[in-house]
């Protein structure tokens, strides 16, 4: 039995949509790596700092959260771009 491709009907608009979906997946997928690692580092350093000086725990936690919120913004940009690709394109 010879191996053949299946019948597919690919139009220009379909191709654009397919590319947009793949782009959305890659945008969010790769965009999540950086913030994930970065926020993890921030939290690791906060744990270290609290371990050294537990009395400043409240201040350090707040600083950690602010730092994480800032480093998460690139992840949110990826999310926005993905949603734009999914629903606007």
């Amino acid at each position: 039995m010879p191996v053949t491709g299946t019948e597919m009907l690919i139009t220009g608009a379909d191709l654009v949509k397919a590319a947009a979906f793949i782009g959305a997946g890659i945008s969010m997928g790769l965009g999540a790596i950086g913030p994930g690692v970065g926020e993890g580092m921030a939290a690791a350093k906060a744990c270290e700092a609290i371990g050294r000086n537990p009395r400043e725990a409240a201040l350090l936690t707040r600083t950690m959260l602010v730092g994480q919120a800032v480093s998460e913004s690139t992840g949110i940009y990826s999310l926005v771009i993905s949603l734009l690709l999914l629903f606007v394109v």
């Binding site: 379909d14 979906f21 793949i22 959305a24 997946g25 790596i33 994930g36 926020e39």
Partner: peptide
């Protein structure tokens, strides 16, 4: 028969897969 639905599913897998690498390492 169109390409885009299958690309959406493939892309869902790629998105979740890559998206979990960074947070896993960070955690």
């Amino acid at each position: 028969a169109a390409l885009s639905p299958s690309m959406a599913l493939l892309s869902a897998g790629i998105c979740m897969g890559f998206g979990a690498i960074g947070p896993g390492l960070g955690n």
